[in-house]
């Protein structure tokens, strides 16, 4: 079942809060280099799935395997992040008191230990990497601004830029276009496709137009499990999906 090109593999993951099953034996396979859109109604368990993958929530049962054979359920958030899994929150989460530049600098892959950061000086190579990311996320002219002063969309991009700076193998993106203008949404889709050239991406999204624009395989979640999987046209035609979305 696990191929060599499998990057992430969830098997029978169950999480319950006080009797409520947020995830119910969820299984999911993600190929290396794949972009996947995950959709589902509120409470389907999308965010909990992200929590489990990134180590925020420990599952009651089930396996989460990353890459060759790394069991993510035994690791905490920083360890998982260091393995190469980046996460973008639903609400843009950047370091508001810091400049755009510093936000990216702090996100750059590198030694994270206090004994290093206490003496660290910015190297030329680090400067170049930050510069490159600034270009990618189109914030080059805002490099000196406080991140807290950016617009909502700019913050989203900065956060995506921070994920890129982390150089992850897998990006988990939670509702990247919520609250964005149409133009920003279009640019974001383009940005994600660009990122997907070198990395795997999981996008959780409500915006159907955006998912359609991405044009990737779609997983529909419902009540903590996978309801349907396939192209956007395939899942839209699935009667169970229609029932969940439109009610019976």
């Amino acid at each position: 079942m696990i191929h060599n090109d499998t990057l992430l593999y969830l098997d029978g993951v169950t999480v319950s809060f006080d009797g409520f099953r947020a995830l119910n034996a969820l299984s999911l396979v993600l190929e290396r280099g794949e972009m996947r859109a995950v959709i589902g109604p509120n409470g389907a368990g999308k965010t909990t799935m992200m929590d489990v993958i990134t180590g925020k929530t420990r599952p009651d049962s089930g396996k989460v395997v990353f890459g060759e054979a790394t069991d993510l359920t035994r690791l905490d958030e920083p360890a998982i992040a260091s393995l190469g899994i980046g996460r973008k929150f639903q609400k843009p989460t950047v370091f508001e008191p810091h400049t755009v530049w510093d936000n990216l600098l702090l996100a750059l892959a590198g030694d994270r230990r206090p004994r290093f950061t206490l003496w660290a000086r910015q190297s030329a190579e680090e400067g170049e990497r930050v510069e490159a990311i600034l270009q990618t996320i189109r914030l080059a002219e805002h490099r000196g601004r406080r991140a807290g002063d950016l617009s909502h969309g700019q913050k989203q991009w900065l956060e995506i830029g921070m994920l890129l700076a982390q150089e992850p193998q897998l990006l988990l993106v939670d509702e990247p276009v919520a609250g964005m203008t149409d133009a920003e949404t279009e640019q974001t889709a383009e940005l994600l496709r660009e990122i997907n050239r070198t990395r795997s991406v999981v996008v959780v999204e409500h915006d159907m137009a955006f998912v359609r624009a991405l044009g990737v395989k779609v997983t529909v979640m419902h009540e903590g499990a996978v309801l349907s999987e396939g192209s956007i046209d395939h899942v839209s035609a699935d009667p169970r999906v229609v029932e969940v979305y439109l009610g019976r």
Partner: peptide
Amino acid sequence: SRFGKVLIAVRDTESRTRFLG
């Protein structure tokens, strides 16, 4: 120092620093 920048980041957005490693 860069340590201090991380520290301020931790102060304001602890979970973000964790997900950054």
